[in-house]
Design a protein around this nucleic acid. Structure first.
Lengths: 348, 348
DNA sequence: AGTCATAATTGAATCGTTTCAATTTACATT
DNA sequence: AATGTAAATTGAAACGATTCAATTATGACT
């Protein structure tokens, strides 16, 4: 291993000077700079990052925790985080909490241990109570995507989830569906609906606007997974709940719900319409294609990185919160309900 | 920041002893061990990993490079790598090369720079010529998943891809399809078919067995992406190539091909049958569901980690290669061709 | 030539651990 | 009590960079 000392010796300067060249401090004379550069090349010297990390207490690494890497929504965000971070010379340590708070907390501590320069939390991967414990201490900057903990020291990048929930529900109401079941995220002790709260509020707001009373019996809890959506939908179907449409709080659950509906021999949207949330790529190639709320995935990721790296030297003294826009994407899984259309019976 | 020195002072021992306690070396007496532990607790001491890393030249980190994190095949592997690594106290630095050799090479160098304890390459993310450059130098252990570079110093975990290609093709041949087009991975200057070579061989082997001559005109190059599959299929359809079935070298391209086929108003499998490769979750919920070759994704990931961590202290002196089993999963996208079935015309 | 400000350079201290040769302690044996 | 051996403990030297106060060189100006 060749070290800075070797470089210094070879080029006949002090290690401090060699270091200055590497970090191109302006005060090194051109002559010595060239000499050092030459030695670096000849010795094929690579600075040891570990020594650098120890001395500077920085790692050029940011930690990312995602709730479920197999949910196609997240890779889209991760890709953008990774690409932008790379551009700025940072790497990412990725942790998958598998929708499990315990794993999320563990991951959080690992990242603190590793002295990452910043942490990006995607979704509600760490419970609020755990997070607040670390705010008084010297902690790396934390940015949360798609979850608003309401903690001023933590930067937040979200979409207007209430509007999202509202748009999805309103779309169904406008088409004539009155009994709209919802499949939410996991209910939680101290973090209500794990951040799917906004969608929930939006749903209720739309109902209110259309003077339809909220019916808690057609609210089922999911877990943001395909299977969770499938199972929740099964409950709707078995309970003879008579729902005319379903608003699933993410696309994966929507697709799971569609599986259950098709399995039962019912048609989408003629018998039951479905709306999702996220707009993952799959939404446009499942059958029928899924109407959903599109989140700006690339922007969410990039914005989080921008915020993090802009404040990595010194913490911002004001609280940061960005709200990004979302939009309704209309596809096949919604349509006017049967009674308003032809009465033709046809099964898959 | 409280350091080991503080702990040592507080408990009245030398720092060497305190260090020994932390790394629970057996020769520390129970009495002093307790004293040190007590001090650690009272001071709420956390060892500084960066100092540790520098001193030991180890980081408890493994680097992972994937070709495309938005391809659902990879998150399944990543999850398993991450989970097992975490269990053994390791974190992963994830790099997404976006199917771009240049980015793959950059990622590789970043990982070497960061002094990761090992590197897992998934698929052909780094060209062979780049890899061999680093074999004479002191490099971390490298394990490659789903790609056989044929370099003894590099550990390899693959499936029997020739068998995979063979099974997929044979299945179609058995159903009566004779003209089977294929959509391969990217053709490459120095890395032929970027590791999709095995599937290609298997395809040819099956044809041979059925005495069907190989026709290079029905071989199209894809890029392992949905869109790549879509475009390749378009070519087949526009060229009036008369293919009766398609074997796409991964599921994503197969799904893309299905989109093109459906868009053209043709039926699957009645007009054109499709087989994929990987068995991503989507294969079972697209329409029609996709017949494919299932790869043991969890096992691939876990095996790579096992190999890496078993040899992280000292390099193995023999070359390691594991071949895992795969299987054909039959779903709706294949069936006997039209002439052998009913002649009913029906379009989507 | 002398003075002074500025530009370059030096090298020891530091970051916080682990490691290991040297030393001390404890205890059994004669 | 002396001796020998094994068990505990010590603390200085690494690991390889960055930082910064101190020093030296350079050149402009009188």
């Amino acid at each position: 291993m060749t070290t800075l000392k070797d470089v210094a010796k070879k080029s006949g300067v002090a290690v401090g000077t060699a270091s200055a060249v590497i970090n191109n401090k302006s005060w090194v004379s051109e002559k010595t700079r060239q000499r050092v550069l030459q030695a670096i090349k000849e010795l094929n010297y690579q600075p040891n990052q570990l020594a650098r990390n120890l001395r500077t207490q920085r790692t050029n690494t940011i930690g990312v925790i995602v709730p479920d890497i197999t949910n196609p929504f997240f890779p889209q965000i991760i890709r953008n985080i990774g690409a932008l971070a790379h551009k700025y010379g940072y790497s990412i340590i990725l942790c998958d909490s598998n929708e499990d708070y315990q794993l999320g907390i563990e991951a959080f501590h690992v990242l603190l241990d590793k002295k990452v320069d910043g942490i990006i939390l995607i979704g509600g991967v760490v419970p609020k109570r755990e997070l607040v414990k670390y705010l008084d201490k010297k902690h790396p900057l934390i940015v949360v995507i798609e979850r608003d903990y309401g903690i001023p020291e933590i930067a937040t990048v979200v979409v207007d989830a209430i509007k999202g929930g509202y748009l999805a529900t309103k779309h169904l109401l406008d088409l004539g569906y009155n009994k709209i079941g919802i499949i939410t995220g996991p209910l939680d002790d101290d973090d209500f609906y794990r951040g799917s709260f906004g969608r929930y509020e939006g749903y209720k707001k739309a109902l209110e606007e259309y003077k339809i009373s909220f019916n808690p019996e057609i609210v089922k809890q999911g877990d943001f997974s395909l299977n969770g959506g499938y199972k929740a939908m099964k409950q709707f179907l078995e309970n003879n709940s008579q729902v005319q449409a379903i608003f699933a709080f993410n696309d994966l659950m929507a697709i799971g719900a569609m599986e259950a509906i098709k399995e039962k021999g019912l048609r989408i949207p003629e018998d039951i319409a479905v709306v999702g949330y996220d707009d993952i790529p799959e939404a446009s190639y499942v059958f029928p294609t899924l109407t959903t709320i599109r989140l700006p995935k690339a922007q969410l990721g990039r914005m989080a990185v921008e915020i993090l790296l802009n404040h990595t030297k010194k913490k911002p003294e004001f609280s940061i919160k960005k709200v990004l826009p979302l939009e309704l994407i209309t596809r096949q899984s919604c349509g006017a309900p049967l009674k308003l259309k032809s009465n033709l019976k046809w099964r898959y």
